[in-house]
Design a binder for these strands. Structure first.
Lengths: 239, 239
DNA sequence: CGACCGTTTGAATCACCTCAAGAGCGGTGG
DNA sequence: CCACCGCTCTTGAGGTGATTCAAACGGTCG
């Protein structure tokens, strides 16, 4: 149950043998509930030797600047493995924060590496997963560097829809996104005031509605066109 | 010779056995010279089954938006492995571009994977390398999202100094950086006009000089303080 | 020499920010 | 039950960092 969505994500990236899938599903771990607005640094999670898979809620990797600003560098939706980098490298100033009340499945690091040794194919698969997350990060760089607030917002709504499997061509797309406008701003590098104004404009144009933490996309094609969104970077097809 | 600096980078990230280092150094490949401003899409380089290590010059990963803007998502300095992601995942819209006349060492993909199979320890090492690049990418996200032009520029000069091993505490730091102001802008998400004005301001303040493609940092500590630069994310110490 | 590329600078404009204040709303306590 | 608090959303007015358009300057190369 805990890792179902995670396994689904991996399967989208490439073939997964029966044995490999079984090895993943049977990874021992425990559920941890996290209240909203709790920060838990990755270093803490790695010192307790845990790999975290988000089951429910919304997490973010974040980075606090000296000026007191907080930049969210990645959003994690259910099924995401949150701190894969900490498996091989200790990253000092990065931390995880819960944007909404969340539940994670914590796997001991040893169990994880054991599974990889017994099933070497998993290494390649997880590497591929890691690469797919890099592509998402790349896209965030493009948003922050080259898109205005309007496009960034549209793009993010598209990305999260696809990542959660909610995108659909013809009909209205709707999904829950338990995030505050303030946090949206921290992710997109703009102030919450400007997030608010931009959301209103998008709502008035009928491009996308975000209210009460629910995203409604009346016309998927129109939004993706506005956002310059190309889902190719998410599907991560094999060569 | 070709891979000396690359091996040095890897050794900074963790232990490297004699055999592993030897396996890397003896990777067969050929030198390719690339003129400035040439784009070669990663898909091309992967279809010809090549892994690229930069020997000399300056490359960038880039992404062209529909509006015709170009966002540079990563800079590659000599010793960098440029397209590690394409080893496991085909990324469609991304491409490599030469910012200056460059020389790369191209290794056949098969030779690379063979070496990894004969020396499984290399997998972890390369994974660690990949993670270290992600940390750099994270830092770029912070720059684009939370730092102004001034800080971004300072931060980039610091980062490139450390990545090339040119940073030094007390004395003046100097290194060549074959990049145009126009390309700096593409990397930092600002216009070349604003790059120019900001560089002038930094020069007048004596924080950092960038002229004729040479970076001069009179006072390393002062610059890192201004930039909010913490080299921790580059050293990537082991846990 | 003219053509070209990159740099430099000015003036006007725009996207976004800062400061500030009010409104809605659920939670808590008297 | 109402008063009060804190949190989030909302909106206004003014300011600033960065952009756009435009033009001039300097070096390099054929």
């Amino acid at each position: 149950m805990a890792l179902t969505r995670f396994v689904e994500q991996l399967r989208r990236l490439g073939p997964l043998s029966e044995a490999e899938e079984q090895a993943l599903r049977s990874l021992p771990g425990r559920y941890v509930d996290v209240p909203a607005n709790l920060d838990f640094s990755e270093s803490i999670s790695s010192s307790s030797e845990r790999i975290l898979v988000l089951v429910e809620g919304l997490l973010a990797s974040c980075y606090d600047t000296e000026e007191g600003e907080r930049q969210l560098t990645a959003l994690h939706v259910p099924g995401d493995l949150c701190d894969l980098n900490s498996l091989v490298l200790a990253s000092k100033p990065m931390c995880l924060t819960a944007l909404a009340p969340s539940r994670v499945y914590a796997v001991a690091r040893g169990a994880f590496t054991d599974a990889m040794q017994r099933h070497p194919g998993l290494i390649g698969i997880l590497w591929r997963y890691s690469s797919s997350r890099v592509l998402i990060l790349n896209e965030r760089v493009v948003s922050l560097g080259s898109r205005d607030a309007r496009q960034s917002l549209c793009h993010l709504f598209c990305e999260l829809a696809v990542r959660q499997g909610f995108s659909s061509g013809g009909v209205t797309t709707t999904y829950a996104l338990p995030i505050k406008q303030h946090q949206l701003g921290s992710a997109l590098g703009i102030t919450y005031v400007h997030v608010n104004r931009t959301l209103r404009a998008l709502r008035e144009e009928g491009l996308v509605h975000f209210q009460h933490q629910i995203v409604t996309i009346p016309n998927w094609d129109r939004l993706t066109r506005q956002a310059g969104f190309d889902p190719g970077y998410l599907t991560g097809y094999l060569q």
